[in-house]
Design a protein around this nucleic acid. Sequence first.
DNA 1: CGTTATCTTGACGTACATCAAATGTCGTGG
DNA 2: CCACGACATTTGATGTACGTCAAGATAACG
Lengths: 247, 247
Amino acid sequence: MAVFGVAAHRPPLVLQAQHRPSICDSCGVRASNVCDALGYDDLHRLAAVARVVEVAAGRTFIVEGDPADSFFNLTDGTVKLYKLMADGRRQITGFLRKGDFLGLAVSSGYAFSAAAINDVRYCRYSRGGLRGVLDDFPALEKRLMEVASNELVEAQEQMLLLGRKTAKERVASFLLAQSRRTVGYAARNPTLTLPMPRGDIADYLGLAIETVSRIFTQLKHDQVIAIPTIETVIIFDHAGLLECAGS
Amino acid sequence: MAVFGVAAHRPPLVLQAQHRPSICDSCGVRASNVCDALGYDDLHRLAAVARVVEVAAGRTFIVEGDPADSFFNLTDGTVKLYKLMADGRRQITGFLRKGDFLGLAVSSGYAFSAAAINDVRYCRYSRGGLRGVLDDFPALEKRLMEVASNELVEAQEQMLLLGRKTAKERVASFLLAQSRRTVGYAARNPTLTLPMPRGDIADYLGLAIETVSRIFTQLKHDQVIAIPTIETVIIFDHAGLLECAGS
DNA sequence: CGTTATCTTGACGTACATCAAATGTCGTGG
DNA sequence: CCACGACATTTGATGTACGTCAAGATAACG
C-alpha cells in the first residue's frame, strides 16, 4: 500500500531545477493544509519522512490506546474519529476530510480510534521524523498550533451541542456545519454530500439513529431540505435551518 | 489591579545576581505550568509582557466574541469557561485552576466566555508580546502545543460523557476527574474540594441541577462518597465510583 | 437572627430511546 | 434486465431517564 509511484496519478507540477520529484508533487491538497506552511522548496523535508497509505472503506486504522507514533494528513476520503465504552456505546468526536490533519495526541497513546468511512488515502509521518522537521521549520509548528486551536474551538461548539441542544437543533447544526465545510457550497448550489451513514451521524450527535432519521424526514416535510439520494442533502431554506439550529 | 508589588505577598525566591526582580519571583505556580518551559534566566522576557490581574468572585472577564488579544495564566482561584445560547441555555466547557493556561483562540475572537468562580488572580500576556517571546523560545511554543493537545484529549473525553453517558456516569466521571486533578489526593486522604456551585456542575455535565443533586445524595446513600460540607466530597469507595463511571 | 440564595426532595411531564416491523437500497448472480 | 438477499433507513408503538415545576430544608450573610 505504501507507494511512491502515486505521482503517475496526476500530471506532475513543474519542478524547479534543484529539486528531485517527491510524493508531494502529486498531492491535491497541498495548498489547503499544514504542508502549505512549508515553501515548495522545503517540501522534500516533509516528503522524506512521509509515506502514502491507502485504507479501504470501513477499516479501522487507529485504535484508541495504540502507541501514538504517527501523524496523518488526509489526502482523500472521509475518516471518523470515535471513542468506545465497554458496552459498545460509541461517541464519534469528529469527521475528517481531505486536507485535514490528524494525530495530535498526548502521553504516548491515541485518545481515540479512527476508521475510514469510504476509501481513504493519507500521508503518514513518523512522530520522530516530523519532530525533526518541526524543529527546523517553526512556521510548520505554528500551523499545527492553528490546527489545534481550531479543533479546540470546534470541540467546544460540539460540547454545547451535546450538552444543551435539542435533537432538531443538533441535526440542523450538523447540516449547517457540513455546508460550511463543503467547498463550492453556495446559495446557487446548496448541495452537500454526507458520506457517513445515519448511524455515524447519530453517534456524532449523541442521538439514536431513529431520532436522526425522524428529524431528517421532518425537515424534509417542512421544505427546509431535500434528500434526493441517501447521501445527498439540498438546503432549500438556509435561514429556516439556522432557525432550527437555535443560533 | 495590575500590580508589581505582589512580590510582597510571599517571601521572594533567592535571586541570582544577574537578574532584576520580576513578578515571576513571587509566582507560586511557576514550576507547574507553561512558564516552566523557560529557564529561570529567561523568565524576565515573559514577565516583561505580563501583568498580574485580580478578578473578584463571580465576575466575567472574557466575553465570547471579544477580540482575542490576550493570553492568561491562572495563578490563583478557579475559573469556568462557558458558552451561552440566545435563550440562556449554558454549557460550561471547562474548569481551570491555578497553573492552567487560557486563551488559545482562533480567528480574532474568543470562542467562549470566562468567569471567576472564586477570587482569581492571573498573569495576562498581550498576544503580540507573547508572540515575540514564542518566536525566540521554541520550547515555550512546544509547551503550548502540549497544553493544546491535552485539552483536545479532555474535550474528546467530555464529548463521550455528554453524548453517551447516563447522569450517574457523568457525575461519577466528574468526581473522578476532579480527584485526578487534586494535588495530594490519595487513598489516605481521598478528599476533594468542589469550588463551583451545583448549577455549574450541572451545566458542565449537561444535566439539570436537580439531577446532579439527586445523584449526589444517591452516591451518598450508597456509601460511595460523603459530603461533609457543600463543597467538600470524600470518596469512600473509589472502585465503586469507577464502576458508576462506566469506564 | 432574619433574609436571601443555594440546595434538596417530591410530583409530574416529555423528549428521546428502545423495540419491532415495514420499506428502501444496492450488489450479485441468474 | 430482473430477482434475490443483506443491510441501511424509515416508520410506528411504547417505555423511561431525565427535565420541569413547586415546595421545603440548609447554608450564607449582614
